[in-house]
């Protein structure tokens, strides 16, 4: 029996490990490419992909060492693109495909500074963080207020309105895309952060729903006791509900932060100046402007991805709890 269990475990581990590899390989590839020199990014046809970045080797005079097929060990006369080979002191023109650079394991860190310089990284980061933080603040304040009303105050029409909240969750954004653009244009908000931030202060159905589910679980007696003590509704909200709901609020804040960090369509439509670009837009712009520079592009993707991964590791528990909460009660 014990033996059978052990085998079962090993099989499960093997299966899970194999699947994990599939999930993680693209990330590894991204980081690996971000550390490769331009000349080494495209593997020559027929050769396997290079997992550990390699760099060309140079001699003391800074000349690139190459191997010329047929005459091994012949070195390149000039470092740059001129493919002139010295053979026994004689110059020889060769096709680039006939030479193989000599390589060793080495990381091409320069992709990172290059990407930072081209992308105006700090400005984009500042914009992204500004939007994220404002939206998180707006969402947490507005959604908790609204959720409180939906969960802890009895008033006629409440449940009908809550159905509306649930229904708008199903509404595809495509329906309101055009009129919202016209509305923001009319308000003079296009070309600023306002269309991305201000709506967050008016509640977002998903988070209202999430917080309502949580508030429902807080015992009624606590509110009644506070009310007897002469607490106003706002007082109960601030002093009783909010302190007890920190995990749920943290979940909502985290989700919203991640969502905003990655949001693409809205910044794409509403931000018009490169000084306003968020990281996601800047990355896409970079991709279309510097199509051939995969090294810096992957470096930038890594830079955008890593903070999120770190944040996720720090807050894993909150995260999984949050997902579970929405999933089960849905």
């Amino acid at each position: 029996m014990g033996n059978r269990n052990a085998i079962k475990r090993i099989v499960a581990h093997l299966l899970l490990a194999a699947t994990s590899v599939l999930f993680i390989v693209p990330f590894v590839w991204m980081v690996s490419t971000s550390l490769k020199h331009e000349s080494r990014i495209f593997p020559e046809s027929g050769k396997p992909p290079e997992w550990i970045p390699r760099t060309d080797q140079f001699d003391e005079q800074g000349r690139r060492l190459i191997i010329y097929e047929g005459k091994p060990g012949v070195e390149l006369k000039d470092v740059d693109d001129k493919k002139v080979i010295l053979v026994d002191g004689q110059e020889l023109n060769v096709w680039p495909s006939d030479v193989t650079p000599q390589t060793r394991i080495g990381f091409h860190w320069q992709n990172y500074p290059k990407a930072f310089a081209t992308m105006n990284f700090w400005v984009n980061l500042r914009n992204t963080l500004f939007i994220c933080v404002s939206v998180v603040i707006g969402t947490v304040i507005s959604c908790s207020l609204v959720a409180y009303s939906f969960s802890r105050i009895e008033w006629p029409g409440r449940d009908a309105l809550f159905v509306v909240v649930l229904a708008t969750m199903m509404l595809p954004y495509e329906v309101t895309l055009v009129p919202l653009f016209v509305l923001y244009k009319w308000l003079g908000w296009t070309g600023s952060f306002k269309p991305l931030i201000i709506p967050a202060f008016f509640g977002t159905p998903f988070y209202i729903f999430l917080l309502r589910q949580f508030f429902m679980g807080i015992p009624r007696d606590l509110s009644s006791a506070a009310r007897i003590d002469g607490c106003s509704e706002l007082g109960i909200f601030m002093n009783v509900i909010i302190p007890l709901s920190k995990p749920a609020l943290a979940t909502a804040a985290l989700f919203m932060f991640l969502f905003q960090w990655a949001d693409f369509l809205n910044p794409l439509i509403y931000l018009q100046d490169d000084r306003q670009y968020t990281l996601a837009i800047a990355l896409q712009q970079f991709q279309s402007n510097h199509e051939s520079e995969w090294g810096p592009l992957m470096a930038m993707s890594t830079v955008i991805t890593v903070p999120i991964i770190v944040l996720f590791f720090l807050t894993q528990r909150t995260f999984i709890q949050g997902i579970t909460m929405t999933g089960l009660k849905g």
Binding site: R126, N127, F130, V133, D273, R275, Q276
Partner: peptide
Amino acid sequence: VVIFLLWPVRSGWVLASFDAPAP
């Protein structure tokens, strides 16, 4: 994050704003 957002990058720009936050 808060310090980064408030950091005066150029004189006149203290808080990132709605319209043109970046110098």
